[in-house]
């Protein structure tokens, strides 16, 4: 495929603390097409954020390490690229926005300066032009009165506006890919709706690819064309958004969808949700076989012995479950 922008092959990212190894990402394969939004969903500790951090090599040092695999972006393997090369890519070709904009913005720098800094650094724009550019970027992300706003500090802005500023910084250099790690999780729903709409319209205009990491299946259903579901460091299901939501195949995905209290449907008369029993396995001590076995209502002998491979079911749907292998 020549419309693939980023291709991850067999990525393993581990954390070495004391004598223990936390295998946070255990063999992830993913690709993102140009102009596409790929949703990466999963619960805390599933490895979705570590996968994203691996792409930009922002894994916590020195404990974290990419121990295996390739991350090919525009012909470069990011997993083995030098630090100099990564600096050219970060914030320039691939940008990232996070859940909590306040912690990623510099509290003592005016926001215009924070945007201008990026284009000065990567594009070599002179200071005055960089500031004009910053004002344009603020207007582009829907901030009213940008000429006044550039002189303000992050604490003077609301949470929604801060996330708009983060997006302006992220998009300032015209990157080809945006990694959005829970970009709306800290926002109220009416503000979330604004930010999601903004991301969609910016994507329409620029053709940027988005890797959207979230625990919110609603956000994914609305934003993504394809979705990968992670559990205990692996992708357990991967499909186009329609088939994932209409016909989830992995018992974990099924269970996850059933356990969401729906605001668009009345609850069952007894108000008991079909919950997934138990909790995620300890990442330091994973069982042999399928990582979901102890919580799976459909577990059988083989699941406890062998780990199922991620196997295709139809052309746009892969699942890692013995029930759906060959």
């Amino acid at each position: 495929m020549d419309d693939v922008l980023l291709n991850i092959e067999d990525l393993h990212t581990y954390f070495f603390v004391d004598d223990k190894v936390a295998k946070s990402v255990r063999g992830v394969d993913l690709s993102i097409g140009r102009g596409e939004t790929l949703g990466l969903v999963g619960e805390s500790g599933s490895g979705k954020s570590v996968t994203a951090q691996s792409i930009l090599r922002l894994i916590q040092q020195p404990a974290g390490r990419i121990v295996q695999g390739r991350i090919v972006f525009e012909g470069t393997d990011l997993a083995s690229a030098g630090e100099e090369e990564m600096r050219r890519i970060r914030g320039n070709r691939i940008s990232m926005i996070f859940q909590e904009p306040m912690t990623s913005l510099n509290p003592v720098l005016r926001i215009g300066e924070q945007i201008a800094e990026v284009v000065r650094l990567h594009r070599g724009l002179p200071p005055r032009e960089a500031l004009v550019y910053a004002t344009d970027m603020l207007a582009k992300v829907g901030i009213a009165d940008p000429a006044r706003r550039i002189a303000q500090f992050p604490h003077e802005l609301s949470g929604g506006m801060r996330q708009r500023v983060m997006i302006a910084i992220a998009l300032a250099c015209g990157p080809r890919m945006l990694i959005a790690d829970e970009p709306t999780t800290a926002l109220d729903v009416t503000i979330q709706a604004q930010i999601l709409e903004l991301m969609r319209s910016l994507q329409r205009d620029s053709g940027i690819s988005i890797l959207l990491i979230t625990h919110d299946l609603g956000v994914v259903a609305e934003m993504a064309q394809r979705v990968a579901v992670m559990y205990a460091g692996q992708i357990v299901e991967h499909a186009d958004v329609a088939s994932l939501f209409e016909q989830p195949l992995h018992p974990y995905t099924e269970g996850l969808m059933a356990s969401i209290p729906r605001m668009d449907e009345p609850p069952s008369p007894d108000r008991i949700l079909p919950a997934i029993a138990g909790m995620v396995p300890n990442i330091h001590d994973l069982p042999a076989g399928c990582a979901f076995q102890d919580r799976c209502p459909k577990v059988h002998e083989r699941c406890r012995l062998e780990e199922p491979p991620l196997s295709p079911v139809g052309t746009t749907h892969d699942v890692r479950c013995w029930l759906h292998v060959g």
Binding site: V189, G218, V220, A221, M257
Partner: peptide, 25 residues
């Protein structure tokens, strides 16, 4: 009405009319 319409539904093809409120609370 706006609050309810702003919540993304975990399903596809059911996109209801969204009211996007301007501004912050």
């Amino acid at each position: 009405e706006a609050l309810l319409s702003a919540v993304p539904r975990p399903s596809v093809g059911t996109a209801s009319k969204r009211i996007i409120l301007a501004g912050d609370p």
